[in-house]
């Protein structure tokens, strides 16, 4: 089993975010996570990414219980789990080559990591990852010179470059136009299938989920409302899942500004 959650709950700042989640994905399986905003899709992905620790229940990833491991083993496990974020977590003034290369930091010694910072290594591999998202020409660009959609795709290239056994993606195409979004989801599915990686993607667009994923998991109020093969997801089920949903305001995090005032 690549991913096995059993009755997992998550609380943040005293608030119950996820409640009794039970979910299993076999190695190589692909599933989409859908649901209204605030349902806990991002939190569930962060829980699986070992960003959060479950308050109760069990979380098994790639055959290991992450929070039972010592720190070296946890690092090794984490290096096998890749994440794509809605807002790519790229330092504004870092260059694309470094940001994508950082995907493999978990597989490198600290010394090798520092050497790469001064002298980029495996430029060919990084370029290949970027070319998959059609950004091969942005290799030497700085991240803050990219558009929101380009940043999102650089984030995807980083996760692909990591070559994880479990790939998680949180709204990975929210900043892309519909055609590019479709191509990008197809790319994620294809790459995961080639490497036999497990793929779990949260999507705001039900159409994309239905078009690309054999299995859909509906999340509402921190609970799994349904977990069904694509053919059994009915319009009535979807209507119940999204009842009363209001789409969130789009937000864009501004780049860090340099100080303007001299300190005295």
């Amino acid at each position: 089993m690549s991913l096995a959650l059993s009755e997992a709950t998550l609380s943040l700042r005293g608030q119950r975010i996820l409640d009794g989640i039970t979910l299993r994905l076999a190695q190589g399986e692909q599933a989409a996570l859908i649901g209204p905003s605030g349902a806990g899709k991002s939190s569930l992905l962060l829980l699986v990414a070992t960003q959060y620790r479950a308050a109760s229940g069990s979380v098994q990833l790639l055959g290991a219980e992450p929070w039972q491991l010592d720190s070296a083993a946890l690092r090794r496990l984490r290096s096998r789990i890749g994440s794509v974020y809605q807002h790519a977590p790229l330092p504004a003034l870092q260059r694309v080559v470094t940001a994508v290369g950082a995907g493999r930091l978990g597989q490198l010694s600290t010394l090798a990591a520092l050497r790469r910072l001064l002298w980029p290594q495996d430029v060919a591999g990084i370029r290949a990852a970027l070319e998959q998202v059609q950004l091969g020409d942005k290799l030497w660009q700085r991240c803050d010179r990219l558009s929101g959609g380009q940043r999102q795709r650089v984030g995807i290239a980083r996760a692909l470059y990591q070559q994880p056994d479990l790939l998680l993606a949180d709204e990975p195409v929210s900043a892309l136009d519909p055609r590019l979004a479709d191509d990008t989801i197809a790319l994620l599915c294809r790459q995961a299938a080639t490497r036999n990686s497990t793929l779990l993607v949260s999507l705001h667009s039900v159409e994309l989920a239905l078009a690309h994923f054999p299995r859909l998991i509906g999340l509402r109020d921190g609970q799994v409302m349904f977990d069904l093969p694509r053919s059994e997801v009915t319009p009535a089920l979807l209507a119940a899942l999204y009842a009363g949903d209001t789409p969130p305001e789009p937000d864009d995090t501004p780049a860090a500004k340099l100080p303007r005032v001299a300190p005295c």
């Binding site: 070992t50 290096s79 789990i81 950082a102 930091l105 978990g106 010694s109 600290t110």
Partner: peptide, 9 residues
Amino acid sequence: RVSGASPVA
């Protein structure tokens, strides 16, 4: 951190 990078990295 969650992709396994060491503290210094």
